[in-house]
Design a protein around this nucleic acid. Structure first.
Lengths: 346, 346
DNA sequence: TTTAGCACTCAGGGACGTTGAGTGCTAACA
DNA sequence: TGTTAGCACTCAACGTCCCTGAGTGCTAAA
């Protein structure tokens, strides 16, 4: 059954009020609004019906109404208007483009910090899992006879390096040969196809130098790291400013939950995309501590192999309109920056 | 004036009790301890004197006593016994040695996470400022005619890299020449001596390629980053478990304060070194939100140029004995790991 | 010097009443 | 038929009052 225009207006007003004040909204407060020309009694009847339909809830008999998750969902999908970003918002958001960061991890983490400061909410930045990535280039740099740096460049532009110190000296020529063999043998194939058998080819071709086992170890680490997601939490303390989390236990539970990368898969529910931004409300987040919280998030892609996430976490009472507008603009900038910084697809 | 042995014993018992329970300690509770063979009245007299001396405080008339910062200081300096680490503690701490991390930032941040999980306190890891560092080696890796990776290795083993994508193609030979010139001109001098004038030498020697300005930009970023401190906060939510922070505002204030790197200098007060671990208590941390908190921390060195910090933050009521023991062991491992991973001094 | 005894203090918590915002229902009204 | 005024009812929040019990300081006796 479709809602009447009046019901929609009332619902929208209630949710807007509740978002501002965090207090249950009563019929009188709504009736006094200039845009509603009805008495409180009429509003009461409408509210009662909205409650029956599941869009509103009563914390207790003699309090006002608060929106239910379904109410928020309707608000997000249909009612909330186009947001208005101030010039200051836009300036701040554009500063993402000035992020002078070199590594993906840090870029993502810094982006989270920026968004957190911009929105005054706790943010969550999750780096992508990249199992299908391939290595494009190896390079071993000799720094001294026993000190080397190995550098790996992937096809999506992620660069990793590590210092290696060998027990016995290795000549620059040997290191160069090893670089050559690595590039011949292990580039262009998915990292998870780099099996011990395959590495044996390198071993035979390059001869056994002191470097070889260290390179093998590094590769193992590298592959493991690529297939891991990392979570960066920023502005944790901001959560505590919201009255919903004046109960410390709730705040702690939620913070614990979202800091733990193993909980991330639970958050990957499918919802509609609005301008690249998704919103999950309360129980849509499953049954954990997130069931009383909401998340406004955007995703970013590293080529075609990985998809990361950057999102805002807070009580179900969030200013969805403003937040999604800001995040949409921000994530557009972030995606552009990532595309510039890392390789585009070949 | 020196404290009598009995006063010391009483003080130690009170502080130990308070650390466990977070409740003011009364005379009767102390008197019932087997190691104290006196009546509560006697204890009361002693407690009253300890209060006069400034080691104890009363929250209000009819509560027990709680330790003052001076009391904690005495406890830390003289009274607290040798800690006993369980086998599990030691196992967990040794896992720091298994940290397979490649970059200093991440190593430090992971170390913080480990300590946080080990101790159930919020931890703070601060990376060092490294102004006097010198560059030991440059390497530009060509990945494609327009894609390059620049790698910089410092004399203390920190490696940084960045993807560079030029607007116009640059040949591998040109890149090699640039690498050579960079190594000739800019290695072995402190990074803050790399002025625009000095860079002009590179410009003249290498010819103007599309790469050159990007390298210059990268160097600027690199130098700036080297001279910055970064703060990694781990286990923020753990703070909320302590009754001292059941008042959300206090927790928020403290978390905000310690997440802000600009507040770090305030924490660098001098205190005695116990086994590499330092403890600052309450007002010893200055007048900010840390004046009601304590910190147990250790430092780590990157060669001789930089000194970082890793520490545990919590209420003044902390189990200093246990924490400092754990941190001491941990930081020993961390320092060893850093020494192995990065270059030792030449 | 130590201890027993006692009067005093005061935070914490339960019982109780008041207040006020808000609801649901009914009956009158347009 | 939809809207509104009126009214009885509900209930969380808040303040008051009192009691309880842990703890103290002081004094006098051992």
């Amino acid at each position: 059954m479709e809602l009447s225009a009046r019901k929609k207006l009332i619902l929208k007003t209630i949710i807007g009020d509740y978002i501002r004040t965090a207090e249950p909204v009563g019929s009188k407060a709504i009736a006094s609004r200039p845009e509603l020309g009805f008495s409180s009694a009429t509003i009461r009847n409408e509210m009662s019906e909205l409650e029956e339909m599941g869009y509103l809830e009563k914390p207790h008999t003699s309090a006002g109404r608060i929106p239910s998750p379904a109410g928020y969902r309707l608000y997000v999908d249909e009612l909330m208007g186009q947001p208005n970003l101030t010039a200051a918002d836009i300036d701040c958001i554009n500063s993402v483009m000035k992020l002078k960061v070199k590594e993906l991890d840090r870029m993502v983490s810094e982006a989270g910090k920026l968004i957190s400061n911009l929105t005054d909410y706790t943010t969550l930045a999750v780096t992508p899992m990249m199992q299908r990535v391939t290595i494009r280039k190896f390079q071993i740099i000799s720094v001294s006879p026993v000190d080397f740096v190995i550098v790996v460049v992937t096809d999506n532009g992620v660069v990793k390096n590590k210092m290696l110190r060998t027990a016995t000296p290795v000549t620059a020529d040997e290191a160069e040969l090893l670089t050559y063999v690595l590039n011949q043998t292990l580039t262009g194939i998915p990292v998870d196809a780099i099996t011990p058998q395959r590495f044996d080819i390198v071993r035979r071709a390059a001869g056994v130098t002191a470097l070889l086992t260290m390179v093998a170890d590094f590769l193992d680490e590298f592959i493991e790291e690529m297939s891991q997601q990392k979570v960066f939490l920023q502005g944790a303390s901001k959560l505590l400013a919201y009255p919903e989390y004046k109960d410390v236990h709730k705040a702690q539970e939620l913070l614990d939950f979202i800091s733990d990368e193993s909980n991330m898969p639970a958050l990957r529910t499918f919802t509609r995309d609005i301008d690249g931004v998704r919103i999950t409300i309360g129980p849509e987040n499953g049954t954990g501590p997130m069931q009383n919280a909401s998340m406004v998030y955007a995703t970013y892609n590293i080529g075609s192999v990985g998809r990361g996430l950057i999102g805002i976490v807070g009580p179900t009472r969030m200013d969805y309109a403003k937040l999604s507008a800001r995040l949409a603009l921000f994530s557009k900038g972030l995606n552009r920056l990532i595309a510039e910084t890392f390789f585009e697809e070949d």
